[in-house]
Computed example of a mutant assay.
Amino acid sequence: MALSFTAIDFETANARRGSICSVGLTKVINGVVTATTSWLITPPDDGGFDDFNIKIHGITAHDVRDAPTWASSLSRILDFIDGDIVVAHNAAFDAGALREACDFAGLAWPILDYTCTLVMSRALLDLPAYKLPWVADALAIPTFDHHEAGADATAAALIAIALAESKSAMTIQDLVVHAGVKMGRIDPDSWSGSRKASKPARVRLDFEDLEIDPNGPMAGEVVCFTGKISWVREDAQAMVIRHGGSISKKPTQKTTVLVTGDFDERTFRPGMKYSSSLVKAFALVESGQPLEIMTESDFQQKFEPNEGIRELAGHS
């Protein structure tokens, strides 16, 4: 089996993606994990550590006071990758973190081809949610210390191996084709994301006087909101419709996305106690309905750009 790649995971110190404080790397050669490593990093930004991030991964400013810089870490990361295709779970975050960390440090973006086990899992599996613990649980990946960068990188690697085996894919490129996913790329001047083609538009005009993009990131989705979200509910609903989707007021057999404001990265995991709306959503998934449950941060990420160019050498 020629399935060879490097999986990566970053943890960050604060809300800035470039505030990288830890990295994990796992090497896969011919479908077998052959090496894994992780280390702490002095964040290249000046934003310090947020309590929210500390509660997620447990890393503090004290822990990184003697850690390597981003400049030296990037060189070490690229040496480990050694030209491989890179895999990450929610690669949009990790690729964005790498680019922004380079901006903070005044470094050139490296050349990397990458893909995303989150995007591929959405395409190939029928699950109620696709965060790392959910996909790992569905694929019988051994229990791991979520948000420890090395453990998360290894979990992403094992997910990619399991998905490839399920489709008899011999390479990461084969797996990407099976999933109908576009490979992502970073080069010194531009970037493009790893993503799946949008669903056909199915727009219901629930709001008047909205300019609608029928091919937007919510094309074909029927979205229901539950719990307390930070947005005004009507604004979030309008955002869905403007980007090609439609709204359901409660989970139904037509709902394809349920956005919950009751959970975040620390708490939304298999086995939790859920609200009545989420219980109904899980039942719909078990009955065979293609429905994904997202946290608010997952939902907001849907509207982020999928490609861009480097306009600044530094970051303020």
Results as ranks from 00 to 15, higher is better:
Arg266Val: 09
Arg266Ser: 14
Arg266Cys: 12
Thr267Glu: 14
Thr267Ser: 15
Thr267Lys: 05
Phe268Pro: 07
Phe268Ile: 01
Phe268Ala: 06
Phe268Thr: 03
Phe268Leu: 10
Phe268Gln: 08
Phe268Ser: 13
Phe268Cys: 01
Arg269Val: 15
Arg269Ala: 13
Arg269Cys: 03
Arg269Glu: 11
Arg269Tyr: 08
Arg269Thr: 15
Arg269Asp: 05
Arg269Gly: 01
Pro270His: 08
Pro270Ala: 07
Pro270Ser: 10
Pro270Gly: 10
Pro270Leu: 04
Pro270Phe: 09
Gly271Pro: 12
Gly271His: 09
Gly271Phe: 08
Met272Gly: 15
Lys273Asp: 14
Lys273Ile: 15
Lys273Gln: 14
Lys273Ser: 14
Lys273Glu: 13
Lys273His: 13
Tyr274Ser: 04
Ser275His: 06
Ser275Tyr: 02
Ser275Pro: 07
Ser275Thr: 10
Ser275Asn: 09
Ser275Gly: 06
Ser275Phe: 05
Ser276Leu: 13
Ser276Tyr: 06
Ser276Pro: 00
Ser276Thr: 15
Ser277Tyr: 12
Ser277Arg: 13
Ser277His: 15
Leu278Tyr: 08
Leu278Val: 15
Leu278Gly: 12
Val279Pro: 08
Lys280Leu: 12
Lys280Ala: 12
Ala281Arg: 09
Ala281Asp: 09
Ala281Leu: 13
Phe282Ser: 02
Phe282Asp: 03
Phe282Met: 13
Phe282Leu: 15
Ala283Cys: 00
Ala283Asp: 01
Val285Phe: 04
Glu286Ser: 10
Glu286Cys: 02
Glu286Gly: 01
Glu286Arg: 14
Ser287Tyr: 02
Ser287Leu: 04
Ser287Pro: 12
Gly288Met: 08
Gly288Gln: 06
Gly288Pro: 13
Gln289Pro: 02
Gln289Ala: 11
Gln289Glu: 10
Gln289Met: 05
Pro290Gln: 03
Pro290Gly: 04
Pro290Ile: 00
Pro290His: 01
Leu291Glu: 09
Leu291Ser: 08
Glu292Gln: 09
Ile293Ala: 06
Met294Ile: 02
Met294Pro: 03
Met294Leu: 13
Thr295Val: 05
Thr295Lys: 11
Glu296Pro: 05
Ser297Val: 11
Ser297Glu: 11
Ser297His: 09
Asp298Phe: 00
Asp298Trp: 01
Phe299Ala: 12
Phe299Gly: 01
Phe299Arg: 03
Phe299Thr: 04
Gln300Ile: 07
Gln300His: 08
Gln300Asp: 14
Gln300Glu: 11
Gln301Thr: 10
Gln301Ile: 04
Gln301Gly: 05
Gln301Leu: 04
Lys302Ile: 13
Lys302Thr: 12
Lys302Ser: 01
Lys302His: 09
Lys302Cys: 10
Phe303Ala: 00
Phe303Asp: 00
Phe303Ser: 00
Phe303Glu: 08
Phe303Thr: 03
Glu304Trp: 08
Pro305Ser: 07
Pro305Ile: 02
Pro305Tyr: 07
Pro305Lys: 01
Pro305Gln: 05
Pro305Phe: 01
Pro305Met: 02
Asn306Lys: 12
Asn306Met: 08
Asn306Tyr: 07
Asn306Phe: 10
Asn306Ser: 14
Glu307His: 14
Glu307Ser: 13
Glu307Gly: 12
Glu307Ile: 03
Glu307Arg: 03
Glu307Trp: 07
Gly308Gln: 03
Gly308Tyr: 07
Gly308Pro: 05
Ile309Tyr: 04
Ile309Pro: 00
Arg310Asn: 03
Glu311Val: 06
Glu311Ile: 02
Glu311Ser: 09
Leu312Ala: 07
Leu312Pro: 01
Leu312Ile: 00
Ala313Leu: 08
Ala313His: 05
Ala313Gln: 06
Ala313Gly: 14
